[in-house]
Design a protein around this nucleic acid. Structure first.
Length: 585
RNA sequence: GCCCCGAUAGCUCAGUAGGAUAGAGCGGUCCCCUCCUAAGGGACAGGUCGGCGGUUCGAAUCCGCCUUGGGGCACCA
């Protein structure tokens, strides 16, 4: 319809060019669905945009444009309004088709092929396996899976991935923390390091370990603390302190035993994260191990490639990547003076791997605090010979947690944080997902636990779910009242749906595919939420204004078909967001 | 200091390629169940769109400067 109008207006413009009213050139103008029904169904700003080249006032030009407009049966009326808008009123007989289309397509309604099978990878959450997921990760999980699901619904070939940072110092700190808790369990008088992981789960893992190996990994605490520099609270450096403890753990335990403690932590926590996400409705095609990149030589290969293309150099005993030539603000170390690769080195290898797997678009979803990291990764992609625009980094701002008025401080290390699992237990999966995705991802978000956990809270997810349940309820009432429903008859009498509420509802239904496509392409799932709230609102208003189960068979059947279409679209949207569609509440 | 993201109703936020009178939810005041779940609906009140310039027929939206909140600037991950 929009396209049709566009060609009609284009013809009109060409006519005026031929009459030399407007200088010859190609002009772009917009055609929009109007917000206010008083402005017809569609409007164009063509007259206002062409007023200047035509050296005429917009309203006069609009009149000429309208006069030159070819006749078309779909247009019932054309108006000139405001500063020079041309408003189009369309023939209403076609608007009923939407009810039929939704009925025919069912769950498929709204899905499309705009993605044309393009291979897209979406990497999200990728939290370090050093502790359970907290509510900050939850936002990334909800947002990332919504983006992936939207892309899939619009025809992209989507691959969801979690990058597991199972190598590196943080994991050693975890392993050492577990070992120290284990020593406590054995009866040693341990002083826990300031920089260790203090969460309860560390103790849990340690106790499990103790049950399995008893005293096998026990070493006298005096021996452990021998030659360890002072901790922060003792006036020393907490980093040096913990590093020395890690080294000592490795030395006293030996490779195999240390590995055992390390894996106890990794496997335990990873399993927990996996279950957590699965229960949250988030599934991955791949859990990608950083350690594997180290083990299979990918990191070396990646660096060799950068070396070969002249992007690496040595300085101060370290190996540097000359990223500042490629848009980064400074060069970055990839291999430390001590011979160890940096986290960035494995990330280069990881992105090389992504490129090699043939993804046409790579989407990384990160916490907003990592934004400074973007230029160097883009630089790496360029240095590897690919187009930096293949990588799209989407940032998710923190969800600031409140308990009533009080802000909840969160730190994984200190162990004072609210986990995603706790959140789910308190507010449920549906409310959690809905809340997280309701806001634009780059917007800071206040998540008041007390409000979200309150039973009496007016949770917006209920509002949408309730609309769905209400439709179901009407169909139950239909049976109870001994009335019948005839779908074909309803379709044949859709023109009886002439109430303002009904026409508005149909036009809202018609927008769903556009909303879905737009939400997917802009990576903005909140647009879908907004739409669902609007649709629910339209329905509730209609519900209050009119009776559906009326005596008149034809009208009743038509109305039932309309509300069935509403239910279908609500269900399609909610399912896409992995939110339940209750039949009764 | 440099970089990123914000600043819109009392609060939390939308605002679709610059468009017509800036919207919603919550909170406030008032109204609507002899009727398909009132977990609903309707009405009213509430705004210098952080500020000042600029671009133009037209700016919350684009550009510049400023104020202000958060975040980031490692041989940590």
């Amino acid at each position: 319809m929009k396209k049709k109008l566009e060609t009609l207006i284009q013809k009109s413009v060409e006519a005026l060019i031929n009459q030399e009213v407007i200088p010859s050139a190609s002009y772009t103008f917009s055609i929009e669905r109007t917000r206010d029904p008083q402005h017809g169904d569609y409007a164009t700003n063509a007259a206002m945009l062409l007023a200047k080249p035509a050296k005429m006032n917009p309203r006069q030009l609009a009149e000429k444009l309208v006069a030159a407009l070819p006749q078309d049966s779909a247009i019932t009326k054309v108006d000139i309004a405001g500063p020079g808008f041309i408003n189009f009123y369309m023939d209403s007989s076609s608007q009923f088709d939407i009810v039929k289309r939704i009925h025919e397509l069912g769950p498929e309604f709204g899905r499309s092929q705009v993605g044309a099978g393009k291979k897209v990878q979406v990497e999200f959450v990728s939290a370090n396996p050093t502790g359970p997921l907290h509510v900050g990760h939850g936002r990334g999980a909800a947002y990332g899976s919504a983006v992936a699901d939207l892309l899939e619904a619009t025809g992209f070939d989507v691959h969801r991935e979690y990058y597991v940072n199972d190598a590196g110092r943080q994991m050693d700190i975890l392993a050492t923390s577990i070992w120290l808790r284990y020593l406590e369990e054995c009866g040693e008088a341990v002083r826990f390091p300031d920089n260790g992981y203090r969460g309860e789960y560390v103790g849990d893992i340690a106790r499990d370990l103790f049950r399995q190996v008893r005293d096998d990994y026990r070493r006298p605490i005096d021996l452990v603390l021998e030659n360890i520099p002072a901790d922060e609270i003792q006036g020393g450096d907490k980093e040096a302190h913990i590093d020395a403890l890690i080294a000592k753990a490795k030395a006293l335990l030996g490779v195999a035993a240390y590995r055992d403690v390390f894996n106890a932590g990794l496997n335990n926590i990873l399993e927990d994260i996996r279950n957590d996400l699965r229960e949250f409705g988030v599934d991955y095609q791949c859990w990608f191990s950083e350690q594997q990149l180290m083990d299979d030589g990918s990191v070396e290969q990646a660096l060799a490639r950068l070396q070969a293309s002249g992007h690496l150099y040595q300085k101060d005993g370290a190996t540097w990547f000359a990223s500042s030539n490629l848009g980064d603000e400074k060069d970055r170390v990839v291999r430390r003076e001590n011979g160890q690769y940096t986290y960035f080195a494995s990330d280069i290898a990881y992105h090389m791997n992504k490129l090699d797997r043939g993804f046409e678009q790579i989407i990384d979803i990160w916490g907003a605090d990592h934004h400074g990291y973007i230029p160097r990764v883009k630089a790496a992609i360029q240095a590897l010979g690919a187009d930096a625009s293949k990588l799209k980094v989407l940032l998710v701002q923190f969800a600031t947690l409140y308990r009533g008025e009080e802000k909840v401080q969160m730190s994984t290390r200190s162990g004072e944080f609210v986990t995603l699992r706790q959140l789910r237990d308190e507010v449920g999966k549906d409310a959690a997902r809905f809340f997280y995705v309701m806001r634009r991802s780059e917007q800071h978000m206040d998540f008041d636990l007390q409000l979200a956990t309150s039973k009496t809270n007016e949770n917006p997810v209920f509002y949408v779910q309730y609309a769905h349940a209400r439709v179901c309820s009407v169909f139950r009432q239909l049976v109870e009242k001994g009335l019948t429903r005839d779908i074909p008859s309803g379709m044949a009498h859709l023109q009886l749906l002439s109430e303002e509420h009904e026409l508005g509802l149909m036009s809202t239904l018609e927008r769903y595919p556009e909303v879905l496509e737009r939400a997917a392409l802009t990576h903005e799932p909140h647009q879908l939420i907004l739409y669902l709230r609007e649709l629910a609102n339209d329905f509730h208003t209609y519900y209050n204004a009119h009776q559906f189960l009326v005596e008149d068979d034809n009208l009743r059947n038509a109305r039932l078909n309309l509300i069935a279409a509403v239910r279908q679209v609500l269900a399609n949207g909610l399912k896409l967001l992995n939110i339940n569609t209750p039949e009764a509440m």
